[in-house]
């Protein structure tokens, strides 16, 4: 016997909506992986030279970073 025939119509609708919401939430969480990695990479490669306030070093660091992305 199918799920649909055992559950009242309203409940099927509610469960369908919950699955859609869960899928959307999961997609959102998964997408953070790439963006978090980007920010971590950026901080790791550019924060120290920037904090140094040495203009040439900053320029070199940005140039080197951009050559590899």
């Amino acid at each position: 016997m199918g799920l649909r025939s055992r559950l009242p119509g309203g409940r099927v609708h509610e469960l369908t909506q919950r699955v859609e919401r869960l899928e959307a939430d999961l997609a959102e969480v998964r997408r953070h992986n790439l963006r978090l990695a980007e920010l971590a990479d950026l901080v790791q490669e550019l924060l120290l030279p920037m904090a140094d306030q040495d203009r040439e070093r900053i320029d070199r660091a940005i140039e080197k970073f951009q050559d590899s992305i």
Partner: peptide
């Protein structure tokens, strides 16, 4: 085994190949 670390590693590898 976390995608975020796999991405960071791929960034690092590309940097090494470019260098």
């Amino acid at each position: 085994s976390d995608p975020v670390d796999v991405v960071r590693e791929s960034f690092r590898l590309q940097r090494a190949v470019a260098a």
